[in-house]
Simulated assay, not measured.
Amino acid sequence: MLRSKQLDALVCLFRTNEWDVIESYAKYGPIVTWQRLVSDMIPSVFMDQYQGYMLGLEYLYTKGYRRIANVFSSKGLDTPERIRAFNDFAFKYQLKADEIPDFHDKLTIFDGEEIARWWMKQTNRPDAIACSNDNVAAGLLTELRRAGFSAPDDIGILGFDNTDLAHLLDLTTIHYPANKQAENAVYIILDMLGQHVSEVHVLEFELIERKSTKSS
């Protein structure tokens, strides 16, 4: 459709083709991706997941948390960077990175409930859990509440994305400016199409402190 001019441009969020296949179509119109990519033909508006996850880990450390469990999403490009951030974080503070098992491919509220049930069975429990997103954090929080536990009294819970759900449940989380990321993709496309646009946004993660972690 891009080649036949039925589309002016593409924003590639996910892909099944190899990048060299997608790049071969860039001569027919602008293609911009949200995925991590270094290319002369396809601009990328990705955000540094290492930086975002490290921001959350450092925050948990300042609040006194030392036994931190990690919940990761799929094994895409974001997860390896978050794993690298935790390994560097553990090395920096001389924490045992493999003392607590990681959770992978966890994205839903139900996954969070499952992790809560796991936590309740442990004799040496993590004192904080850094979640892959706010859905997992919400499931974790609500399942623990049903069982009579609370955050932050019994455990610290950190979400990611700063969705409406995090606001509703008072979850501490990492704000992910997806709206500005999307605007940057459009700005780049319009610029490539020869239209005047504003400068792209500076994209930064932000720690949003609420009531699922210690206040001091």
Rank of each mutant, 00 (worst) to 15 (best):
T62F: 03
K63G: 09
G64I: 06
Y65Q: 03
Y65W: 05
Y65F: 08
R66G: 09
I68N: 01
A69F: 01
N70M: 15
N70A: 11
N70R: 07
V71H: 00
F72C: 02
F72T: 01
S73Q: 06
S74R: 14
S74V: 15
K75Q: 15
L77F: 15
E81H: 12
R82D: 06
R82L: 05
R82I: 08
R82C: 08
I83F: 02
I83H: 00
N87E: 13
F89I: 04
F89V: 05
A90I: 07
K92S: 09
K92H: 12
K92Q: 12
L95Q: 02
K96A: 14
A97L: 07
A97I: 09
A97G: 03
E99L: 11
E99H: 08
I100T: 05
D102P: 03
F103H: 02
K106I: 10
L107W: 10
L107A: 11
L107N: 13
L107T: 14
T108W: 02
T108Q: 04
I109E: 07
I109L: 12
I109V: 15
F110N: 13
F110M: 10
D111W: 03
G112N: 01
E113A: 14
A116C: 07
W118M: 06
M120S: 11
M120Q: 13
K121W: 05
Q122V: 08
Q122P: 04
R125H: 10
D127S: 09
A128V: 06
A128H: 00
D134Q: 07
N135L: 14
A137L: 03
A138L: 04
G139S: 05
L140S: 05
L141D: 07
E143W: 04
L144W: 02
R145T: 12
R146C: 13
G148K: 10
S150P: 05
A151N: 01
P152D: 10
D153P: 05
D153H: 14
I155Q: 01
I155R: 00
I157N: 01
L158Q: 02
L158N: 01
G159Q: 01
G159L: 03
D161I: 12
D164P: 14
A166W: 00
A166G: 12
A166L: 04
H167E: 12
H167I: 15
L169D: 02
L171C: 03
T173Q: 02
I174P: 00
I174Q: 00
H175E: 13
Y176V: 10
P177E: 07
P177N: 07
A178V: 15
K180G: 08
Q181G: 12
Q181S: 12
A182I: 09
A182G: 12
E183H: 14
E183Y: 13
V186L: 10
V186R: 08
I188N: 04
I188D: 02
I189K: 01
L190R: 09
M192W: 04
L193I: 07
G194T: 05
Q195W: 14
Q195V: 12
S198H: 13
E199G: 11
H201F: 14
H201I: 07
L203Y: 04
F205Y: 12
F205P: 02
L207I: 15
L207C: 11
I208A: 06
E209M: 10
E209N: 06
